[in-house]
């Protein structure tokens, strides 16, 4: 395999408290990030995601161990050289109302321009490319304060791209965004990693998006341990659930999402029908505390079918006659009657 873009060797991260004692949030971290790879750093609040991100980006010193960027220790790279290898996108909402999108993206060329910051032809090309790659070129001449939060964050990503670095670190870039913008940013990052051979590390709370988009996960636990793996491996070996487990909240390996409903069901039903209808019916049933059995030996059987856009649920209790409903609301009402 190629040389990793960023590599940590027995790294401990943390911060100094007021009394000079070190508060360590992560120890013995041996991590690698390669070109063309998008890694999501996940973990509950307070696990130390931001501290790790700040340390990797050189904004905060390491406690022990070292970070290497393209094989060179981070501590020996001067700020100007580092800026050509590593760019950042931060959570903070920046307030530069008077700058246009293009001007903000052009600021990404600061590490390459002369003392006055005049853009060369190469600089202009890079800015243009960054605008295209992030689909922000349509509002290039708009002022930043006319943009939505999602558009702003895309512009900040374009700025990072213009900086033309192998490595892009993003600290919770989707924190203030609505769902479509979050999906869009994740897709963009995934494409950038693949098509332009960027090494991308982002910390996020978007578990389901991270599971879908990330090539690998860095999973940080409260105790400072960090697990690395492909998303699917981490789901199947249970470490994903482990990191986020709470009472009354579990990870459903069937749906790939977290389930907020209780473990012990009040009743069991059998359910059959087309896959997508079964999926949504099961969700509704789970909310009612009813689990779907894998066997058909139940006192209540439900079949769901779809004909010409009409969905029908057929309830077949052993004791009574079967019933038909045409909506989930109707189905739930009938089941409640049946159970009472």
């Amino acid at each position: 395999m190629n040389q990793p873009v960023i590599k940590t060797i027995d790294l401990s991260v943390g911060y100094r408290l007021k009394n000079k004692a070190a508060k360590i949030v992560g120890t013995s971290l041996n991590l690698e990030l390669h070109k063309g790879e998008m890694v999501c750093l996940l973990g509950p609040n307070g696990a130390g995601k931001s501290t790790l991100m700040r340390t990797l980006s050189g904004l905060q010193p390491t406690l022990t161990g070292s970070v290497e960027i393209n094989g060179i220790p981070l501590s020996t790279i001067d700020a100007a050289a580092l800026a050509r290898q590593l760019s950042l996108v931060l959570t903070e909402r920046i307030e530069v109302g008077n700058l246009s999108v293009q001007e903000v993206v052009a600021l990404g060329r600061i590490p390459y321009t002369g003392w006055l910051g005049k853009l060369s032809d190469t600089d202009k090309q890079k800015v243009e490319w960054a605008l295209e790659a992030t689909e922000t070129s349509v509002f290039r001449s708009q002022k930043m304060n006319n943009l939505s939060d999602g558009e702003r964050q895309k512009v900040m990503l374009a700025r990072a791209l213009a900086q033309d670095t192998d490595l892009i670190l993003l600290d919770e870039p989707t924190a203030h965004l609505d769902l479509p913008s979050r999906v869009e940013i994740m897709q963009l990052l995934h494409n950038l990693a693949r098509q332009h051979q960027k090494a991308i590390l982002l910390s996020t709370h978007e578990l389901d998006l991270a599971l879908q988009a990330a090539d690998r996960l860095w999973l940080m636990k409260k105790n400072g341990a960090l697990m690395v793996g492909t998303p699917e491996d981490m789901v199947l070996n249970g470490s994903f659930e482990d990191a986020f487990a709470r009472p009354g909240f579990y990870f459903d390996k069937n749906s790939g999402g977290f389930n907020i409903h209780r473990h012990s069901p009040i009743a069991e039903v059998a359910l059959s029908g087309p896959q997508h209808l079964v999926f949504w019916t099961r969700r509704a049933l789970q909310r009612e505390g009813i689990s779907v059995a894998s066997h058909s030996d139940c006192s209540l059987q439900i079949t769901v079918s779809e004909k010409q856009d009409h969905i029908t649920w057929k309830l077949m209790p052993d004791s009574k006659d079967s019933l038909h409903t045409t909506s989930i609301a109707g189905l739930l009402m009938e089941i409640r009657r049946f159970l009472s």
Binding site: S57, L59, A79, A80, A81, L82, A83, R84, L86, S87, L88, L90, E92, I94, V96, V104, L107, G108, I110, P111, R159, Q163
Partner: peptide
């Protein structure tokens, strides 16, 4: 863009 971004640009 703020001090953190400024630092990250060298």
């Amino acid at each position: 863009l703020g001090e953190n971004y400024a630092k990250s640009m060298g």
